[in-house]
Design a protein around this nucleic acid. Structure first.
Lengths: 185, 185
DNA sequence: TTATAATCGTGAGGTAGGTCAACAGTGCAT
DNA sequence: ATGCACTGTTGACCTACCTCACGATTATAA
């Protein structure tokens, strides 16, 4: 729980009372490896903050091939955000790569949190802005770099992540086949 | 100016006084085709809201090739957002493809706007969230689709945009060569 | 008006990366 | 203990897309 406080206070300081108010809007959940937090076609009730463990956010195309939209480890937020935010059905799945503990909130809690504590709205705005920036960076990377360069950028950016993930998933994230990734060095 | 009001009121309703407060934080500017709103290496003073005209946000790689990160037409926001938000130097340029009129604000104005009117903070949060979602969609598109499919998706999503833009720029947006795009049909 | 620059199409040949297949090592579950 | 799924590697071949080159047409600016 105090991981969440530290995380928020990197952006906005909180009094004990304010943090207690924040906590009231979160629910703790625990999952085992291979469990799904979100399944395609079902409503997305929660937005998740990872306390420990590792998740993959996956889009499966019409040929059945899995593409990794994002990983999420400690200190990261994850969901099928469009479905969560608009109340529509999930188009992506969210699955545990390791046993995972999360704190999560519903859209209702999210709105209440923003409305009840302006600091939290500012916090989410900051998060959303940097999420947008990170996505734009990844788009630029896919426009400008080949497989090897994208792999090197990933290793540089998240060295610890690579250790915990099979190469086939790294390939599915980078948008290359596992064979190609295997041949890069 | 009332284009801005309509735009904001799609998300949050405003009283006349509130809208006047909002307007005080915007500056009107006018540019000719080929003019630059942002140049690589310079500070990014403003975030822009396009009233009329058309812009391209361009990342130039080390080989000198231009990649289009985004277009911006009427009703769209655009900037090198990372540089704007963090006060760093621009890594992308923003250039007019047509004569363009914009409303813009500085980071200082942005903060004042959010702090002074919580509705506007909510508005920007909503915008940031949907910006993030749109970027994630584009990432998924680049992971799952080939050149022809991405082109068809773009036509479907922004039919009016394609009419106003030379094919070579569409290619630079899609991440293919103009020759390949030309050969698609 | 006339020169110059964009724009678009197309051929020829090259290359990054995909697909399919086989194989070996590792971890997990019965 | 053993069997099976997961993981990583490599070979052979294929294809989507790139690069370079040339022309034709259409805007644009002096």
């Amino acid at each position: 729980m105090h991981l969440l406080r530290e995380h928020i206070e990197k952006i906005v300081p909180l009094s004990d009372d304010e943090f207690a108010f924040v906590c009231n809007h979160f629910t703790f959940k625990k999952y085992k490896k291979h469990q799904f937090l979100i399944q395609v076609g079902e409503p997305v009730k929660y937005h998740y903050f990872v306390l420990s463990g590792l998740l993959k956010l996956v889009y499966t195309d019409d040929t059945g091939k899995e593409h990794i939209v994002s990983f999420a480890m400690e200190d990261w937020w994850e969901s099928d955000f469009y479905a969560f935010y608009t109340g529509s059905k999930a188009t992506m799945s969210l699955e545990c790569l390791e046993d995972t503990e999360v704190l999560c909130f519903s859209l209702h809690d999210y709105r209440a949190l923003c409305a009840g504590l302006q600091k939290m709205e500012l916090f989410f705005l900051e998060k959303a802005n940097f999420g947008f920036i990170a996505s734009q960076r990844r788009i630029i990377s896919s426009l400008t770099s080949n497989a090897r360069e994208r792999y090197e950028q990933l290793i540089k950016q998240y060295p610890s992540l690579i250790q915990r993930i099979p190469k086939s998933l790294v390939a599915a994230y980078l948008g290359v086949s596992r064979e190609t990734l295997s041949r890069l060095y």
